[in-house]
């Protein structure tokens, strides 16, 4: 039923969670006019340069994919290598991606929808340590709530009414506010919109201008690109502008949203890249074991071995070796291990 209510919107209940991202949609709109080019220009650059240019200490960072699926590991490793500090992170199904950033000491605040867990693989030692000690600050949300916030940010409105989190402690530890809908009278939760400073994401392919294609589920990458100020896209493959124009319906993210394009095959390792390669399960298990060790030197040594000692991602791939990488293709396509190799 629809009412013609003539009432003041009263806050009936509210959470105490801190809002870590300070950008408002109106500010971001102004900023976009001055700072984002609409020209069709070649946006390729080395990952080192992209991270240096677009990810700063204290930024609010959004990450594409789903925690350990289609995650931008090449950007994550580079952020850790450049010792970027005090990041606030959108932790919606944040798994291997946020764990590495937290192990590297890059994170100050997290909007939590899902953290600490590696789903079936169990809990992370690194994240438990930092969240249980209170060293990293947090605000609670849900995966849906974070997506709604991004939708508001993409739409350019400052808040959004939702029908989740109501009645729970999750709401009480969020910045949400419960009000009555002025049109129907029912209770809804208002959440602040989210416009991250920068998005790092990994996709299947793009052209040099940043027209991006993703195969399979998109998770939140479309919304995150639309809501974020800066967008760094790493791809398995750069394709021609002609191929993009041959099937424009496949372009999930148009070029003007994108600031940097980096071609990096295997760029999601040890994550799962749908239709390309499956998880490197052993790698992640070894990483998790290092993070769970009470002796903090063990994870530091792991970071030395796999991040700090490398100049770039190519050296990382060389250390992994082609045999190991191609085995992940067998896993992805459910083929017999080492089929024909």
């Amino acid at each position: 039923m629809r009412l013609n209510c003539n009432m003041e919107m009263k806050i009936l209940k509210e959470g105490s969670g801190e809002i870590f991202c300070k950008n408002t949609p109106s500010e971001v709109r102004e900023w976009t006019r001055k700072n984002k080019t609409r020209a069709l220009i070649d946006k390729r650059m080395p990952i080192k340069e992209a991270i240096k240019k677009f990810v700063h200490n204290g930024d609010y960072l959004a990450i594409g994919g789903f925690g350990h699926i289609r995650i931008p590991m090449v950007s994550i490793y580079e952020i850790v290598r450049q010792h970027i500090k005090d990041l606030s992170v959108a932790g919606h199904t944040a798994v291997q991606d946020i764990d590495m950033l937290m192990a590297g000491g890059c994170v100050k605040n997290v909007d939590i929808a899902y953290v600490v867990g590696f789903e079936l693989r169990g809990l992370s030692g690194v994240q438990r340590r930092l969240f249980e000690s209170g060293e990293v600050k947090k605000t609670e949300y849900t995966n849906g709530a974070m997506a709604y916030r991004l939708r508001a940010g993409a739409q350019g409105i400052p808040f959004i009414p939702v029908k989740v989190m109501l009645g729970t402690d999750t709401m009480l530890h969020s910045p949400g506010k419960v009000v009555r809908c002025p049109f129907t009278g029912e209770k809804v939760l208002l959440l602040p919109s989210l416009n991250p400073d920068v998005l790092i994401m990994h996709a299947h392919r793009a052209d040099i201008y940043g027209n991006v294609q993703i195969d399979g589920h998109i998770v939140k990458d479309d919304l995150q690109a639309r809501a974020s100020k800066r967008v760094i896209v790493t791809v398995e493959e750069i394709i021609s502008d002609d191929s993009i124009r041959a099937d424009p319906g496949k372009t999930i993210i148009p070029f003007y949203m994108v600031d940097a394009v980096i071609e990096q095959p295997w760029g999601s390792h040890p994550g799962n890249m749908p239709y390309k390669y499956y998880f490197d399960h052993e790698f992640t298990e070894e990483y998790l074991a290092a993070g769970r060790d009470k002796d903090l030197k063990v994870i530091e040594r792991w970071l030395d071995d796999w991040v700090y000692s490398f100049e770039d991602f190519d050296e990382y791939l060389t250390k992994l070796g082609s045999k190991r990488l191609y085995r992940l293709k067998d896993d992805e396509f459910l083929r017999v291990k080492n089929g024909g190799r």
């Binding site: 899902y114 867990g117 809990l123 994240q127 969240f131 249980e132 995966n143 709530a145 989190m165």
Partner: peptide, 21 residues
């Protein structure tokens, strides 16, 4: 103590959304 829990678990993920909707 929310600030310093004995054990921190993942949080809602999509669970609260599913259970609400």
């Amino acid at each position: 103590d929310y600030e310093k829990p004995k054990v921190r678990f993942p949080g809602s993920g999509g669970a609260n959304d599913f259970g609400s909707l």
